[in-house]
Design a binder for these strands. Structure first.
Lengths: 253, 253
DNA sequence: CTTGACCCTCACGTGGCGTGAGGCGTCACG
DNA sequence: CGTGACGCCTCACGCCACGTGAGGGTCAAG
């Protein structure tokens, strides 16, 4: 038996039958033979070609580029280099994405009242906790998370209460500036913004002014967090955001 | 002017008009008003909602999840955590991809163009061995399997030899306990079980005592695995299973 | 001769829009 | 009051790499 049917080939290479049909349709891998009944029959050579296709697919080359590559015209090294650059770019994007999500999550955490149950749910209380395991696996690599976790892990109830007090103090400063009629670009408002940044910086993870801007925008973008500020004082959310941006400007970031 | 047309909104938020049409079509963002001529007119509230959509889109959340989120009530943190896990998985894959490309490039530069055999060696997979195929069928895309793959991928020949030696040592311990006539609940048998668990835990994937029980049951239930043990010594499969359960009991899981 | 596993060819669905086609609305200028 | 440029509308197909049936033929075993 020197030929194989779709099902056999599919199992061998861990692809679906539909995929082989697709490759046939677009001419990327047309089986050399057909049985009288019309069954696709793959030869050794077909399998070799499929092997190459499968490998290049794992590099996420589009199928038409793979076709070009296998037509033999192009230099494989060039393709690989280009692909590497593409992957690296994508990696950077994903890294940014992760930290953006981190910031969004951090914002979630900050806005939740720090009841012991919440903390347990957020940080877990043992290695048997599924979330804890996943968090360690998945989040273990980002600096923000490592920092935040290593710091908050040891926070007691009292610590959390103090964290909350600090947060409240920051809010009070914001409200005072707002009520006094000073603009968000005033020194008082910017000072409150800087306090806000330092609070997060000290308590959770390193936070520079650029990231701080991102957080500020989130506060206004999402009504759940807008509400937190609007409940304290109307117009506070936008005021806080503007103050943070002004403060970032002041620091030249 | 308290409403905006598609074009204005598009420019404001740096999205295309088609995108706004799309969001309208799928009901994610339906403009509150229409002009007599049927022009879409976006209000302040619409823009606020769009702002949120845009933010979440930057986090690459699927549109239907964003819809769920904005419908309110749902926990944003859950969605964000899931999204984070997804992105991290993708990051891992791309890291592997980059090193695979590097290895391919190295081969390409130093030696001749890569033959299919080279590729097979470099990227693995392709003509997978039977164990790997069956394991994939069994475990599919479970975390354990992914973890095992990501670890073993980087094992060298020497590593594998050591892994084999460790596995043999565990088996020897089991056989010794069995031959000496000690019950599966004896300390010797349970110690061997614990060694077995740690071996897998260290070498392949996180394995607690509860999951270890599941493995043990499978050793007896699945003839392929049963055979492995029965070939070493008759009655060993069941003995191993009982020892593992006893060991799990001992550890209170 | 039946059964059941395998194979075939359509052909529509997926996500998140891009990209026209064909036609109406609006506005500044002449 | 007409005209041209531009913006808006609604279809509706295209993209990529297949997934997922529907409806029907083929093949080896019992």
């Amino acid at each position: 038996m020197t030929t194989w049917t779709v099902g056999q080939v599919a199992e061998l290479f861990d692809v679906t039958v539909r995929t082989l049909h697709h490759y046939d349709e677009i001419g990327l891998l047309v089986p050399s033979e057909r049985s009288r009944a019309g069954y696709r029959l793959y030869t050794d050579e077909d399998l070799t070609r499929l092997q190459q296709v499968v490998v290049y697919r794992r590099l996420e080359l589009p199928l038409d580029e793979i076709a070009t590559l296998l037509r033999g015209g192009e230099d494989a090294a060039d393709h690989l280099r280009r692909q590497r650059a593409t992957v690296m770019t994508r990696l950077d994007e994903l890294h940014e994405l992760v930290s953006a999500i981190d910031r969004a999550l951090e914002r979630e955490m900050n806005d939740q009242p720090a009841t012991p149950e919440d903390l347990k749910e957020l940080f877990g209380d043992g290695f048997t906790d599924e979330y804890e395991q996943e968090a360690q696996e998945r989040w273990g690599e980002t600096d923000a998370w490592k920092q935040s976790r290593s710091r908050t892990k040891r926070y007691t109830k009292a610590d959390w209460e103090q964290v909350k007090q600090e947060a409240d103090a920051v809010n009070v400063a914001f409200v005072a500036a707002l009520r006094s009629g000073e603009p968000a670009t005033s020194a008082a408002a910017m000072d409150a913004a800087e306090e806000h940044r330092r609070h997060i910086h000290d308590r959770f993870y390193d936070l520079d002014h650029t990231f701080h801007r991102g957080l500020a925008d989130m506060y206004v973008a999402d009504p759940r967090f807008t509400k937190t500020y609007e409940d304290i004082a109307p117009g506070l959310a936008a005021y806080v955001r503007d103050a943070i941006h002004a403060n970032a400007d002041r620091h030249g970031d």
